[in-house]
Amino acid sequence: MTSQDVTGRVALVTGATSGIGRAVARRLARDGLVVVVSGRDQPRAEKVVADIEAEGGTAYVAAADLHDEASVGALARRAIEIGGGHVDVLVHSAGTGILGPTAETAESQLDYIFGINVKVPYLLTGQLAPAMAARGDGAIVSVSSIASGRGIDGLAAYAATKAAIDQLTRSWAAEYGPHGVRVNAVAPGTTETPMIAPARGFFESLAERAPARRPASPDEVASAVAYLVSPHAVHVHGAILPVDGGFTAVT
C-alpha cells in the first residue's frame, strides 16, 4: 500500500449520525474510503450517507442500537457484508456522558455509560480485529477525552470510561499490533457537539484554559482520526493523540 492508497478500504464508524462521528464519516469518505455509517437513528444515518454521496463519496447505513453482545455482533456482520467480506478501519465514536456529583449518579446511569463507552467498543473490537490481524492489515481508532488523564469535578464517571478506553488502546496495540493492526485513540478537549449543549458554560470554561482558547470543531477532531487511520501514521501504535487546543500541555 502506497502513502496515498486508501481507495476501496472499508471503514465502520460508530456514532456516525452526529458530532465527531459524523465528521469522521464524512472526512474518511472524502479521503476515498467506503464508509459504513452506524448509529441508532436510521433517518439521521441516511442523511449522513446522502451528504457523503453528494460530495462524491460512498457510504452505506448500518443502523444499530449498540448495548449488548447480540447487537454488536449484528452490526459487525452487517458491516462485513457491506464491505464485501472485510472491514479495514474501525472508529469507535459512539459515546455518552454524565455530568454531576458521584453521590448523585444512579447505578443505572453508571451501567449505561460504561456499557456504551467501554463494553461496546470492547466487544466490537473483539468481533472485527481478529480478521484484520489474520489479513495482516487494519486500523482502529477510539475517541477518548482529555478527561481520561485529568481530575475534573463533575466528570468522574465519564472520565473513568475514557481512562478505560486509553488502556484498551494500549492493550490492543500490544495484542494486535504485531499482526499489522494499528490501534490508537484521539483525546479531544471541549468540542462543538450536541453533548456539550446542556452544560455549555462549564465546557467553554475548560476550553478557555487552553492555549487555543476555544472549543474544537468536529472537523478538526476528524482530521486527527483521518491521519491515524491513514498510511501516513504507519509507525504510530498505541498513541493517545490530544486534540485539545493545548489543554493537556498547560494544565
Rank of each mutant, 00 (worst) to 15 (best):
I146V: 14
E192I: 09
G180D: 12
V48S: 10
D5E: 12
A62W: 08
V243E: 11
R44N: 07
T17F: 03
V35H: 12
A185E: 01
E220M: 11
H86F: 03
L75Y: 06
R135F: 12
H67M: 02
K47A: 14
A226Q: 03
S205Y: 07
Y158R: 00
P194L: 06
A157Q: 02
A79T: 06
T96L: 00
Q109V: 09
T251V: 15
L66E: 00
A226W: 02
I82V: 14
V49A: 10
A16W: 08
A129W: 00
A129I: 08
T14N: 05
I52L: 13
F247Q: 04
S217M: 08
G85Q: 11
Q4A: 09
G246A: 11
N117L: 04
T7N: 13
G180Q: 13
W172V: 00
G138I: 08
Q4L: 10
G56Y: 01
R209S: 11
V229Y: 05
M1G: 15
V91P: 03
D111C: 05
I98T: 01
S223K: 06
L206D: 02
M1Q: 15
G180F: 15
I152P: 01
R40C: 01
A199V: 01
A147N: 07
L12Y: 11
P188W: 08
A159V: 04
L28N: 04
G149F: 03
W172L: 05
S148C: 05
L168F: 14
T2V: 07
P43R: 13
P211L: 12
V72Y: 02
G126C: 09
A74I: 00
D65Q: 12
G73W: 00
H92A: 01
S38M: 04
L99N: 06
A70M: 05
A106P: 00
R9T: 12
D41T: 11
G85T: 13
L241Y: 12
I146H: 01
A45W: 08
A133T: 10
D65T: 07
E204L: 15
S230V: 05
S142G: 11
F247V: 09
P242K: 07
S145K: 07
T125E: 09
V6N: 11
G32V: 04
R40A: 09
P215K: 04
A163S: 15
V250T: 15
N117C: 04
S171M: 12
A133D: 09
H237L: 15
R214E: 14
I240V: 15
S144A: 10
P121A: 06
H179Y: 14
R150I: 09
S108N: 13
A106M: 10
E69S: 11
D137M: 11
V48E: 09
G95H: 02
V118K: 01
F114E: 06
P242H: 05
T125V: 14
V34D: 10
T14P: 03
D111Y: 03
R44Q: 13
Q109M: 11
H67E: 02
A157F: 09
Q42M: 04
P188R: 06
I113R: 00
A103E: 15
A11V: 07
G238K: 11
L28G: 06
V35A: 14
D111G: 05
H179C: 08
Q42W: 07
I98Q: 00
T251Q: 15
A103Q: 14
V72I: 03
P43A: 07
A45Q: 10
G177V: 11
